[in-house]
Design a protein around this nucleic acid. Structure first.
Ligand SMILES: [Zn+2]
Ligand SMILES: [Zn+2]
Ligand SMILES: [Zn+2]
Ligand SMILES: [Zn+2]
Lengths: 159, 159
DNA sequence: CCGTTAATGATACTGAGTCTCATTTATAAT
DNA sequence: ATTATAAATGAGACTCAGTATCATTAACGG
């Protein structure tokens, strides 16, 4: 499913990506409601590394009437569909959501200052295939996080 | 830092791992308090994929007097030191913590039933070195998560 | 042993995420 | 178009994971 990420598509055209996600919802039997479409648009605009509070704010700006519960329900749904993925950065209080544009996302998190550095190539296509065979699973995406110190924080005394 | 994970150590001797973590705390300038030592022991016993509630319960059983706040403070500290890592499984209410025994952890999460399947080999040593050079960071560990359907859930109609 | 300072425990508090349920709305069938 | 139906929604009360505060304790270097 996930295309191997040896730097093929530079920046998959955003418009189509929205349509693609709508199609996915339909195909999985979910209704294309106003709340869900608005959420997809807002997430696209914000672009990733956002908290639920960010989404709540952005959604309210677009459509005042969309309820708090629907935002959380949709975050869960999109996570289940592999469109977004929550991760914990800095605090375990509330997750940060990242987009999985082609099914995957990769970054380095500085455990000292919480800076996040994204990178593109992971070369995990091979491993993905091996796991599908070995474990009998059907894989649609992945998240790869490295932990350590960023350039700025490496200079300081050890953490 | 992270040893390449092409299946070398089968199950790093638990005793030493505890001492190793204590040494890490000391080296980073943190005091080896009773609360912290108890937490390390409890985490070792539980073995990973646990919530803060699990840890709170287990800690209370060992030492009634250790406070709620210290448990959360220590979870944060151990995360910062790369000994554990919170991730999001099933619910967004509270994270699940995994151990990073040799700096890394890998699993497949079923987005339908939330089953988690761990696996050992990731082959990410090369990429880690490349990133350190390319980004000027100093990497100490990583988490790799694949998303998809487990064997049981693949049988059912599409999700 | 003592002094310094980080770390702790008690406890009140906050707010992210959930639950409930009456109402709405997307969709398919007619 | 009209309607039937079940999924989805919004309001808002509620829960409880995680935090803040601060007086007290204990780790550890000297
Ligand atoms: Zn940093
Ligand atoms: Zn990838
Ligand atoms: Zn499953
Ligand atoms: Zn690894």
């Amino acid at each position: 499913m996930t295309e191997d990420c040896q730097g093929n598509d530079t920046m998959s055209h955003l418009e189509n990506s929205l349509e693609h996600h709508k199609a996915r919802l339909r195909k999985a039997g979910y209704k294309l409601t106003n709340a869900r479409i608005t959420m997809l648009e807002v997430l696209q605009d914000l672009g990733g590394h956002i908290t639920s509070a960010d989404v709540l704010d952005a959604v309210a700006k677009v459509d005042e009437t969309i309820g708090r519960a629907s935002v959380f329900r949709t975050l869960d749904l999109l996570t289940q569909l592999g469109i977004i993925r929550p991760t914990y950065i800095g605090t375990s209080q509330t997750p940060t959501y990242v987009m999985l544009p082609n099914g995957h996302h990769h970054h380095v998190i500085c455990t000292h200052c919480n800076r996040v550095i994204e990178f593109e190539d992971c070369g995990l296509g091979e491993l993905e295939k091996k796991l599908e065979t070995a474990l009998g699973v059907s894989i649609t995406g992945h998240l790869l996080e490295f932990y350590g110190l960023c350039q700025q924080c490496t200079g300081l005394s050890a953490t």
